[in-house]
Amino acid sequence: MTITRTTLWLLLLPGVGYLVLFFGLPLVLALLTSLGMGTIGTNEGFTLRHYADLFSDSVYRDGIRYSLYISVAPTLASLAVALPLAVVLQATFPGKKLFLTLYKVPLVVPGIVAAFIVMILFDRGGEMSRILKPVGLSLPKLVRDDWSLGVIIALAWKSIPFMTLIIGGALASIPADLAAAARSLGANRRVVFWQIELPMALPGITAAVLLVFVGSTGAFAVPSLLGPIYPKPLSVWMYEAAYQQNDWGLATAMGIVMSAIACAVLLIYYRLTHGLNRAIGGETR
């Protein structure tokens, strides 16, 4: 079966072409606009003014920092739950099949719904504080609080099943013989996990961490509903710049900065895990 170049490109065209047209093109337009050369807003010729505005304003600098905070914190929180959960789910227990379906429900719950649930449970006067009050306990402020704990809870709650699913898949694909071999060589369960299973599952863990991180970076609805009045994440400022102030140059500059941050984190993380990924690459590609 020989496939000509034409056939190949015809096969690739629908998917790749669509993304070039509706993803690549707008992104290029956004980049141009942020540099003052766009067709969005006024064309003023090449300038770095919008980036200068962005970085000189402490409000936006706080925004960048806050955006990073609300993507790193939920990612770490989810990982702290998802990794042990994925390990535990490799064992057999009664009702496993049902559990494997049920735990994934938050995967399909919209972020706004997650935010609403956090509100009714954890806001001051929410259900949790009502239940705890008669016992003499009180909750710290969790909604619109300085540490954005509510935002973190909502984002992590939504990401845990996704992470567990991917890490669990990576763990399950490790041949059982490897663990048996390690045990016979004198490694106990803990050592097998840290030295054999964890390094081998690293590509899956990497993928899960990155996807959750990126998903939280651009989160808009959840921090808008649950986050503090100040600082606001860059995504919220971007929306306001574009649709309330009509300052498209600034809005697109923010978008490009956020994308750049996501890409940078991706690259750094890749670097850090590269050696191991490559070693295992022969097995998992």
Partner: peptide, 17 residues
């Protein structure tokens, strides 16, 4: 891990990393 028994598999089971 307490049995002190050597084990060789058909699949080799070498640690790939």
């Amino acid at each position: 891990e307490r049995r002190h028994v050597g084990l060789v598999f058909q699949s080799y089971a070498l640690f790939p990393h």
